[in-house]
Nucleic acid binder design. Structure first.
Lengths: 219, 219
DNA sequence: TCCGCCTTTATACACATGTATAACAGGTTT
DNA sequence: AAACCTGTTATACATGTGTATAAAGGCGGA
């Protein structure tokens, strides 16, 4: 008697694509790009390897989709955080920054996933475009928040400030995620708000005290 | 007639190890970790694949050595930059920062190399230790430079400032390397000095004008 | 109820990868 | 000059990889 052929259910194209993308992201986050083999992805997604090439013309295309999904999700989570917060520009900016420096955005898996794809940016022009679009989207959101602050600014100032703040958040995000033991709980958020406030010449730490969930992960 | 056995010269252990490490770094920088196969590394280093396992017990160990060499080199280049600079603490700090945000440190290959290894940090405890040591070494150098500034500081202040400045430099280093076209020549250095000066409450841009080679890559 | 489409599985293939082991030869010692 | 050590090459092997192609079965329409 032969081993029975595997039973299956037909799923919508969207379900299958997102399941494959999620499986890819999980595997890259856990073990790096080398762990995300066609067979491992298929197993994680509960399908057989062949199906991947039914929905994606190649494994590279699946990787691009996974990276794009990651980048979009990061800025979306930050944008979500300013919803429902008081109308004060300072408060909204503080909420945006804090959200980027706290779980689930501050997460070792996310950093590793991001880093895992970064090297492909050089060899894959499409992926570079994805990266650039994601980076600029995040920075633009930041710059728009900065422009709403009640300050006098010189030409090009907010652009430079947005670049600096973005870089600061990125750096804190990486090290805070990778070396959580090197920081006290909530310290990454405090440092981020304090130093960005210094760059912009406002007191963000005072503003953040008003945020509803700010005390959650604090010491 | 058989193809003749390949001629070779015996080399010192140090030469061979460093050649293999350099070849590994180059390949990872060019095509990511997946491009750094045993055979490719050997070819680049001008030896045959078997020799790798004569000097390194496994390919993973070679990768660890390559990552350690990278991290050490980065802080060393920054430290070199403050040699021979005027004794003013502000000048020395500005020189250190500028060196980290200019080639050869600001380099897409270096970022990709760094990112390529970062994902291994989660699965390889030894590599995590290498990462942490490298990160703290750089940050400590920064903190020591900050402490020499003539200011009144509160307890823990310089630590938080060092974390923030380190993160800012990291973030600028990544984006400046990966998207050089998104910035004007020298803009990354200017933004770095300006915003770090704001964090520390000093004017680093004025100081940097005194640096001998500052105008080199400026607009 | 039965037919047919198309999602999904199964199998095969060519090639790359890391590792192990044995044979060879450069260079030093005697 | 001859013996020896060991750095170095060469070969083999088991396994894993992405991809191609054919077969099968779920599920909707007639």
């Amino acid at each position: 008697m032969q081993p029975a052929r595997r039973l299956y259910r037909r799923e919508s194209e969207e379900n299958r694509r997102s399941a494959l993308i999620a499986a890819t992201q999980e595997l890259v986050a856990e073990g790096g790009p080398e762990a995300a083999t066609v067979r491992a992805i298929a197993e994680r997604a509960g399908v057989t390897p062949g199906l991947i090439r039914h929905y994606f013309t190649s494994k590279d295309e699946l990787n691009r989709a996974a990276y794009r999904t990651l980048m979009d999700g990061m800025t979306a989570k930050g944008a979500d955080a300013i919803e429902g917060v008081g109308a004060s520009p300072e408060e909204r900016l503080a909420a945006f920054i804090a959200a980027s420096l706290r779980p689930p955005v501050l997460d070792a898996g996310a950093v590793v996933l991001w880093a895992g794809y970064m090297h492909k940016v050089r060899s894959d022009a499409d992926l570079l475009a994805v990266h650039e679009a994601g980076y600029l989207a995040y920075r633009d959101t930041l710059q728009r928040l900065i422009e709403t602050l009640p300050r006098d600014t010189s030409p090009g100032q907010t652009r430079r400030e947005a670049v600096a703040c973005n870089a600061l958040i990125d750096g804190l995000w990486v090290e805070g995620s990778l070396l959580p033991a090197a920081f006290a709980p909530g310290e990454v958020v405090t440092i981020g708000l304090g130093s960005i406030g210094a760059i912009l010449g406002i007191d963000l730490l005072a503003q953040s005290a008003k945020l509803p969930d700010f005390g959650r992960t604090q010491t």
